[in-house]
Design a binder for these strands. Sequence first.
DNA 1: GGCTAAGTCAAGCAACTGATTTAACATCGG
DNA 2: CCGATGTTAAATCAGTTGCTTGACTTAGCC
Lengths: 227, 227
Amino acid sequence: MVADVDRRPRAAQAEVTRRQILATAERLFAEEGLYAVSNRQISAAAGQGNNAAVGYHFGTKADLVRAIARRHTEAIEELRVACVSAVRGSREVRDWVDCLVRPVTSHLSSLDGPTWFARFAAQVMTDPAFRPVLAEESLASPSLREVLDQLSSCLPEVPPDVRADRADMVRHLILHVCAERERALAEGEVTPRAGWDGAATGLVDAIVGLWTAPHAGERSRPRPPGL
Amino acid sequence: MVADVDRRPRAAQAEVTRRQILATAERLFAEEGLYAVSNRQISAAAGQGNNAAVGYHFGTKADLVRAIARRHTEAIEELRVACVSAVRGSREVRDWVDCLVRPVTSHLSSLDGPTWFARFAAQVMTDPAFRPVLAEESLASPSLREVLDQLSSCLPEVPPDVRADRADMVRHLILHVCAERERALAEGEVTPRAGWDGAATGLVDAIVGLWTAPHAGERSRPRPPGL
DNA sequence: GGCTAAGTCAAGCAACTGATTTAACATCGG
DNA sequence: CCGATGTTAAATCAGTTGCTTGACTTAGCC
């Protein structure tokens, strides 16, 4: 169980197998659904004759999901840290919204070929059983906290509960728009935007508008009486 | 199980059973997850000694999901039609955004006790296998098309692809914000807004801001070079 | 009253699930 | 060189899945 001796051929082969299982599981989860794919199918599709390879290298299905997620969230976290340090000191809403959106889209576009992580993450965050696996550690990111704090300080006049409400909206927006775009790409549909960078621009435009929108009370117009 | 079943006519008793299965399945799906619940568990939890009751009254799991969804989407559709006819002729963005949000939140608040449909729908729309079941018929609603057309005509200067992009965002926003709020309510967490009506107001505010936000190109500020 | 058909119940089916166990095998430390 | 170790392979386990089957109960109609 020593960590720093994995350069040997033996440990290297195991690492190749682990990587293969991770990649295969991520693809199958995104395409077929989290629960629709069994550990056996993953092992087989990963080229492992062993039908228990997943259980051996990872543990339960939750552990596998966590391992897949961590690999991406770590990369995204690095990009976000770089993005934050690039705009630190700014008071522009758009700069900080960029720090929320660009790390995700940039990471997805950095993966060659089709991507599956956005669809995977959307499923994990929507499933009541798997949500806690990813939610805690993902929302605890210090750089993410800083971005949200900075975004809040850009709008001191907006009540805190409204800001919290909208922060949730932004989170859902980024996740599911990326997942939907990924799915559209995979199914060969036409996408509203060309490339992940264009999608990010559309997302940032919309989020800036959402974040800076006037909040309840600033509008005096009454709602229609029907509802 | 129930004492007064013997007095009911035959067909009515079957309808009671169907209703019971639908309600139980909706609750279990929302709480445990779509795939985490088997037809057997649903039958048992619905008080049916028959372990194949679900298969008998409905067909496959997809058929059950469709039946659950239809019951709610029909009610929401009615509310939306009423909402649309109330604001027809208006050129205000907020009026038409109301027609997207209020029917959903109004329907959820009309159900007494805790609700499960939003979480259920979020899972269905996120799962690659079940998404087509709900997506087609839900997006084909004529009143929904009219609202989106009216919303588009409110912003003629915005390119069509940007409008399509943002329409997708609005869809995701309404669905997953309602689902998240429902989940928070079920787990006893504090919710940013009090009541579904307040949540709808926050949602409408944000969506109006999102929809009317300036789009790419209207901002001349270059993005930070880091990404 | 007796018959048909619908609804319910209970048992059992093959197939599949995660998990465990055992064997084969290459690599490593000495 | 050999034994220890860790990875892969393969067989097997109990439990659960959807689905089918047949018996039982009862409403509706002749």
